[in-house]
Design a protein around this nucleic acid. Structure first.
Lengths: 233, 233
DNA sequence: CTTCTGTAATTGGTTAACCAGATTAAGCTT
DNA sequence: AAGCTTAATCTGGTTAACCAATTACAGAAG
């Protein structure tokens, strides 16, 4: 098991090394947007790593929009200049694992905004979905059962109702990590869950009434405890 | 070329179908957190697709924290209940491509926050990097050159100074798409670039002075034009 | 009956051969 | 010499065989 972790971090280091070598190559050869990179085979030979490793590195850079692979043709530098490319690769290489505080901070930022936007933009269909999620949550809590999942689904329903697909995606990305951390640190207790029904209902009503400021306000109150936790950890 | 796009969307559809089948399987077999999924080989056979397709689908669900692959052991359901699992997979399947408006909206949200946080938390080293980025930007603009990249790097320097790794990551994710859209719609002109020097300097000075409210305010002014554009598109 | 052990089957991950489309350039025609 | 054709080569993507670690289980030892 220990060896497994070792190889995984090792793999990551290899990937970072490859990414940094690709950056050096782009700088050395003065590649500009639209220019073609050497083929994966050549890169793997030049860097003395497997083609799989090269592919993974390229896919990562493609995810961040820096490269673009075209089948049967080649890998190309995206429409971003060499300066931005260098800066961004630098950032990507230094990206640390997200800490819990940073996750919560970001979640609150997103939730306040999506609540506000949802109040402005929610359709009747969005509202119905939020209602369903809310009812499912209340039902579970009243039965004394754990309702972390239903809690979360209510918040995701709000994110969807915000009509902002980017924020919706970001909420989806951070949610699982929030959950696992919650369970790890036992953030939620049953008292909180009881209060949660009222708070959720208030948020729901504000969004239903299309009162954006109230929705944001109620969401803020809902996160009050979380706030404290976040800054005291 | 057209065929290429066709196969790509087709691949995506296959992936979505696999993801939805995996969800059905989890529901049917009542798999709970920690339970093991059938092996990749069995799934590929059952779904009548290649193992690569199954792997990609699993990796996507792993990215969203819903599954966890352990080498030489199996793929396991993450510590998220079946209800949350269903809701999140539903969301993931329906995730649409981010529109420009949604990108800009999110960017502004993040930038206002990171500017505020940077003013509170920036180290001297952060400040120096921001200064370098600012100077590079001003230099380019004064020479009448295009400075979109330097502009962006200044903003990323702020994101880094915010000390919030999650927001930093999110900024990195949306930045390339913002750039390409900017270039597509020709959002920036030279007048703006000239004004940009002053605005950037003001933001920098506010962060240097650790005045968080002023930093946020100056950032807001900086995005005023972008705001208008975003809501008029 | 329990515990240990060794072997065989199973697992996700890796590798190398293969594929189809794209690119290139040489060769033929005009 | 210019334009078209065609065949050889190069590309990223796909596939199937392979690997090492893990697991499951049968059987021996206690």
């Amino acid at each position: 098991m220990k060896l497994d972790i070792l190889t995984k971090t090792e793999t990551l280091n290899i990937q970072k090394e490859i990414i940094s070598k690709i950056r050096d190559l782009i700088n050395l050869k003065n590649l500009e947007p639209g220019d073609k990179l050497p083929s994966e085979r050549m890169l793997s030979e030049k860097f003395e790593v497997t083609r799989s490793n090269v592919r993974e590195a390229i896919q990562k850079l493609e995810f961040y929009g820096l490269l673009k692979s075209i089948p049967q043709s080649g890998t190309f530098v995206a429409n971003i200049g060499v300066i931005a490319m260098n800066g961004m690769i630098e950032d990507i290489l230094r990206l640390e694992e997200p800490d819990f505080k940073s996750l919560v901070e970001t979640r609150i930022l997103l939730e306040l905004k999506t609540a506000r936007l949802a109040a402005l933009r929610r359709t009747d269909e969005d509202l119905q979905k939020m209602k369903n999620a809310l009812d499912a949550y209340a039902e579970k809590v009243r039965n004394g059962e754990d309702a972390v999942q239903e809690d979360l689904l209510f918040h995701l329903a709000i994110a969807k109702a915000s009509g902002n697909s980017t924020m919706n995606t970001f909420m989806l990305i951070i949610t699982p990590e929030i959950i696992t951390n919650f369970e790890k640190y036992h953030v939620c207790d049953s008292n909180q869950a009881q209060a949660g029904i009222i708070e959720h209902t208030e948020i729901y009503e504000a969004i239903k009434a299309k009162d954006s400021q109230l929705a944001k306000q109620k969401m803020k109150e809902h996160f009050k405890i979380l706030y404290q936790y976040c800054y005291n950890i």
